[in-house]
Write a protein that binds this DNA or RNA. Structure first.
Length: 362
DNA sequence: CAGTCGTGGAC
DNA sequence: TGTCCAAGACT
């Protein structure tokens, strides 16, 4: 083996300490711990990717209410799936979830494959998520390596280098493999995540309560905060896009479905300004200037990648013929169950009345 | 391998 | 008010 784990504890001792801590201080009443069916565990794991528990809980409850099992999910339209995903972010997760449900129902008889490799072949399920589904729904031995585990193991062994680097990640997988037991996989998997989520936190770890404080290499150096190393920073360019708020005589708003991949893939959003050259002159006359006045701060949505701007002056047209499969009129007073981009949804639900009545700033 | 993908919590 | 980044996977 080229990657020596060099653990600080034997696997048995690590498991004994961790499970003893978990039995007393672990989380035991999260919604997806109620009924650990593969379906519920799967949906929860997908929602929890890069997303905090408190954010996921209400989405998970709504999702389970509407789609209690994989067949209900497979029968739904992608639009309705994305509707329940609106605001959660990373919408490829929702699209992949829907695709995978179709595969499970149509090709696997509605049953989840119960080995890691078959699971990881489904869209949206990688190595760690596959392990989490196996361990938590069947209790069979499977290894996970999520952000919590990475943070804990990185500190415990003072692993240098950003965990996103493949070499570092390989070492962390080897360590995770070393410590993973052959029994109590349901509890162990939750425990190792709880350790990182509640004790070995990013900002303020509570080393005084940690069952591994006496063997933690980062703590021995007094450098808990230095691990894991942060991602090398890249100065992101700010892209600016102007969106068009277009209403018909009945007050409905023109929406456009975004391409299947990329930002807000498959979701409905406002059309982009540039897509209406025939209106360009009209808008230039009535909405001169290219920047939004600070009187409309909520019209500007800043992402980590770019910034969105929505035209400050609403345009009114009596009719628009270019409505097709990727364009639709949307009535904010009687909303359809479709996936709306989160800023657009908040605009249409809460800010629109203000926006339409307000006058442009100076 | 290095980018890309969302939103909100934490400080 | 800005920065960092979270139960990662895909291209």
């Amino acid at each position: 083996m080229s990657e020596m784990p060099s653990p600080v504890l034997s696997a048995v001792e690590f498991q004994r300490r961790l499970l003893a801590w978990f039995d007393v201080h672990g989380r035991h009443d999260l919604p997806w711990q109620q009924d650990r069916s593969p379906y519920r565990v799967w949906v929860s794991e997908i929602m929890l990717q890069q997303t905090q528990v408190a954010t996921v809980v209400p989405y998970f409850e709504r999702f389970m209410m509407r789609f209690p099992n994989v067949r209900a999910l497979a029968s739904a339209s992608q639009d309705e799936v994305l509707h329940l995903w609106t605001g959660l972010g990373y919408y490829a997760r929702g699209r992949n979830l829907h695709r995978a449900a179709g595969v499970i129902v149509d090709e696997l008889g509605g049953d989840f494959p119960m080995d890691s490799e078959a699971l990881a072949a489904l869209p949206g399920i990688g190595r760690s998520t596959a392990g989490a589904i196996i361990a938590q729904s069947s209790g069979e031995r499977a290894v996970i390596l999520d952000g919590n585990v990475k943070r804990s193991l990185t500190r415990l062994h003072a692993v240098e280098g950003w965990p996103g680097r493949p070499a570092v990640e390989r070492r962390l997988w080897a360590l995770a493999e070393h410590y993973t037991p052959h029994e109590r996989l349901v509890d162990y998997t939750q425990a190792i995540m709880d350790l990182g989520a509640t004790l070995c936190r990013r900002g303020t770890p509570e080393c005084g309560r940690c069952p591994f404080v006496d063997v933690c290499l980062a703590h021995a150096r007094g450098e808990e905060r230095r691990f894991p190393e942060s991602k090398p920073k890249k100065t992101l360019p700010t892209r600016t896009t102007r969106m068009l708020l277009l209403r018909d005589a009945r007050g409905r708003v023109l929406l456009e479905q975004r391409p299947a991949s990329g930002l807000w893939g498959g979701l409905w959003s406002l059309p982009q300004f540039d897509e209406f050259p025939e209106l360009q002159d009209w808008l230039d006359c009535h909405a001169p200037g290219s920047t939004i006045e600070p009187a409309y701060p909520s019209f500007i949505h800043v992402f980590s990648h770019f910034r969105l701007e929505i035209t400050p002056q609403p345009a009114r047209v009596e009719r628009l013929d270019a409505v097709g499969e990727t364009r639709r009129w949307y009535d904010p007073q009687n909303p359809d169950a479709i996936g709306l981009a989160a800023p657009v949804k908040s605009l249409l639900t809460g800010l629109l009345p203000f926006a339409l009545n307000a006058k442009p700033g100076p």
